[in-house]
Nucleic acid binder design. Structure first.
Lengths: 337, 337
DNA sequence: TTGTAAGCGTTATCAT
DNA sequence: ATGATAACGCTTACAA
């Protein structure tokens, strides 16, 4: 069985450097030799050892993927699905940098260097992670997703969180709602903060008062949505609509509504964020903000690829538009008809 | 900035081989030298280049992950989540072998060889994929998940599909059901076939007739569940209970039931398979078979690790027990009380 | 116990 | 257009 380029060279009756030139599609190789070499390569099903190639080239056609959220985050799948195609097209493989225990000695930068990855994709919330600081100062091409971090060679891609929520508010005011509550996500997360800001601005633009009893500070989970609605329901003037920072928390809100004998959308309108798979199947189907993970994934790989190939290219700062998906969880406000 | 082992050697005033011995924890190094080297290593935050190491050792501390299903499969997340911890503990990184277009020229074995992965994890359905044949004959340690493929150095791990469904049948007969329908998954998939077989045997053991109008051949999706139930409902004697090959199809079944004005579990009992995250939130919460992905993931890594370290170890053939989760979607059969 | 030097399989430089 | 040969950073006999 053929092991290396040398064997190919021998079989083809040429030198190793010629074989190298052929398999790398370099010029200055006669058509004849090229063909002869290629035949042997085909016959022997030869693939150059990427480890050796990586060693000499100092790069590996590999992208590191680092998640702060753990793999079970619902976005993650969608994001990864969006990554699949572009990955294939660009010829990179993805290496999942296993990282679960936040060992204080762990250094993402070192991990990347040891693996010789060409670039890194980071997906997560916590912007003040020490590992990120190090990453931002390093020369390793990096793209953050859902985290507005910028560095020498690090940029980001994120959905248009603020405007999306503003749009949700306007949609509800258009439906004559004036008592609009908000289930916030982690405020120290980038997306959590922006979505909250979107709510505040939306409320303000609609000349609605900011009422603290209409705000619940949750953590994107279903439970926090449930708890939020329970609390809203106890207010003297319960809201007629609630905007959530995630579809999961919207599900929790709907559960609490049902439990109290009220119904969606007759008594209270609900809007989510994300458009995860199950949202269309909720009862009623959830009106929500869809994140465009296809575009996010494609852009992430594309931008990374450019930064890798062209060192002087500026890191991206991309805001990807969302899509407002109207389904059945919102109705015209009964009180103000 | 320190680049390599040679710089460390210089700083510590020793030879490169001594540094190598120290960082690899080899014996025959005096405590004094060891300490001196380690100090420099710490100071410089040195990490040996794994590409170079991989080249000389012919292995990379890397496991390939290959999915036939694409990333969007709901199990995938759960499986990957189960992989995270064991991965970290065993020191492997996971390389996702991007593979979306089934290019006939593509060879998984070649891809693995080129990347020098130490082992491969394959997750999928289609057992007659040509790439797998090649894989089975190769010397690359391989563990299949949900696919009963065996090779020279390839084994598998799977849930106890057949018995689980048999148990579902018995649970329903215990609830006096006698008209039990089944929504099958792809029959040319390993799990689809086994679950169907479990249904047949369960029916037989309960002395129930096998009625073809109670079988629907679906594909694990929600839509197929919906269609299945629509069909069952048109039969002269609609079933009082239905067992599904997946939670997703169970969700479809429940939707169809609700749509026809009937209700779960009063009119028809429903059982799923998988226990995906949303099942507990369905209306009513779904009774289902929980796959133990933690164990599957842990075993997969562990078995792979053993095969890698000990060439003579036999490939695993592991069947992992499931857990029957009783929630609210089954009731005593009204007809036979 | 420590050091020297020969690989590992490529690519890249420089002759030819 | 083709071929020697020196890297790339590490491990590992073998020598000292």
């Amino acid at each position: 069985m053929v092991r290396n380029i040398r064997d190919i060279a021998k079989s083809a009756g040429v030198s190793v450097s010629t074989v190298s030139k052929v398999i790398n599609n370099y010029p200055n190789v006669s058509a004849k030799t090229k063909e002869r070499v290629m035949r042997v390569v085909q016959e022997e099903q030869f693939v150059p050892n990427s480890t050796a190639r990586g060693l000499v080239k100092g790069s590996t056609q590999t992208l590191g993927l680092f998640l702060t959220t753990g793999l079970s985050h619902p976005f993650f799948v969608q994001l990864l699905a969006g990554l699949e195609g572009p990955l294939k097209e660009s010829g990179y493989d993805l290496i999942y940098l296993a990282q679960i225990d936040w060992n204080p000695d762990y250094s993402l930068v070192r991990h990347c260097r040891s693996r010789n990855v060409d670039g890194v994709l980071i997906f997560g919330f916590q912007r003040n992670d020490l590992n990120f600081k190090e990453m931002l100062q390093s020369e390793i091409p990096t793209v953050f997703i859902d985290l507005d971090l910028l560095g020498v060679r690090a940029g980001y891609i994120t959905s248009d969180n603020m405007d999306s929520i503003k749009q949700s508010v306007h949609y509800l005011t258009g439906l004559k709602h004036r008592k609009i509550a908000f289930v916030a996500g982690y405020l120290d997360s980038y997306v959590g903060k922006l979505r909250f800001e979107g709510y505040r601005q939306g409320i303000q633009e609609a000349d609605l008062p900011y009422r603290s009893e209409y705000i619940y500070f949750g953590d994107f989970t279903r439970d926090s949505g449930y708890l939020a609605m329970k609390q809203f329901l106890q207010s003297p003037e319960p809201p007629t609509a609630v905007i959530c920072s995630s579809d999961m928390s919207a599900a929790g809100v709907m559960e609490a509504v049902a439990e109290s004998g009220l119904s969606v959308p007759e008594d209270v309108s609900v809007i989510g964020f994300d458009d995860i798979e199950i949202s269309r199947y909720m009862q009623p189907p959830l009106t929500t903000v869809r994140q465009d993970f296809k575009t996010i994934g494609r852009q992430a790989i594309q931008q990374l690829d450019q930064m890798i190939r062209t060192p002087q290219v500026a890191p991206p700062m991309l805001v990807v538009p969302t899509e407002f998906i109207i389904r059945g969880s919102c109705g015209i406000c009964g009180e103000n008809q």
